[in-house]
Simulated scan of single mutants.
Amino acid sequence: MSSDDEFKTIHIGRIGSNGGKLSSSSSIESNGASSRRRNMPMMYQMYESQYEDLRGTVYGPESPDFFPAQASECLRKALSTGIETNDRAIINVLVHHNNFQRQKILSAYEDMYEKNLIADIEEETGGFFLEMVVALFKPAHVLDTLQLYKSISNRYGDHSVAVEIACTRSARQLKVIREQYQQDFKKTLEKDINVKVEGIFGRMLSLLLCKPREEDGKRLDDDLVNRHANLLLSVRNIQQTVDDLSRNIVIFEQIFVIKCWRHIAAVLNRADEIRGDRRDIETILRKNKTMHSETRLMLLTLVHVARNSQLYFAEKLRNAMCGDKSDHPTIIRVIVTRSEIDMADIVEEYKRRYQRSLEFDISQTCSGDYCRLVLSVINPTSGMHD
Rank of each mutant, 00 (worst) to 15 (best):
N308V: 07
V161P: 00
L54I: 13
I165E: 03
Y350K: 03
R262K: 15
Q147N: 13
L146E: 13
S206T: 11
I90N: 07
K115D: 09
R213P: 02
L174I: 08
C210Q: 05
R353W: 00
K104E: 15
Q50G: 15
S376H: 02
D223G: 06
G60M: 10
M204H: 07
A306P: 05
R372F: 01
A314P: 11
R76W: 12
P212I: 06
A171D: 13
G16N: 13
V374K: 02
H159D: 07
S206L: 02
V267N: 09
I200E: 10
I255S: 06
K138M: 14
E340L: 05
A166G: 14
R236V: 09
Q239V: 03
L373P: 07
L299F: 14
F66T: 01
S107D: 13
L231Y: 01
F256N: 08
D327Q: 11
R14L: 03
V163P: 09
T85V: 14
Y312I: 07
V95Y: 03
L143S: 01
R318A: 07
Q310F: 05
K211V: 13
E114T: 08
S26T: 07
E122C: 05
S63G: 00
A78R: 06
G276D: 05
E52K: 11
I264K: 10
L75S: 06
N308H: 13
Q180S: 14
L311Q: 14
D120G: 01
A108K: 04
E110Q: 15
Q45E: 09
N269S: 12
G82E: 09
A266S: 15
M46G: 03
I264W: 04
I152F: 15
L233P: 11
T9W: 02
N319L: 14
V197P: 09
S107P: 00
I281L: 15
E131W: 00
L106N: 12
E52R: 09
E315L: 10
R307L: 14
D216F: 02
I362N: 00
S326L: 04
I378E: 01
R213H: 01
A135S: 15
E198M: 06
H141V: 04
N230C: 08
V374F: 02
G199P: 11
N308A: 08
T301A: 07
R296H: 06
I10C: 08
I10E: 00
N86S: 04
I12T: 09
A344K: 15
S246I: 09
E294T: 04
A71Q: 03
M298S: 01
V303P: 02
V93G: 05
V336D: 10
N39C: 11
C210M: 05
S30G: 04
Q101C: 02
V176N: 09
S35C: 02
H228K: 05
F7P: 00
D324G: 12
L297F: 11
L302T: 09
R275T: 07
S2M: 02
K259L: 14
A271K: 10
M132E: 14
I83R: 14
V250Y: 11
R37Q: 12
E29L: 05
K150C: 06
Q50S: 13
Q147H: 08
R247K: 13
N308S: 08
Y47R: 01
L117R: 08
N248E: 11
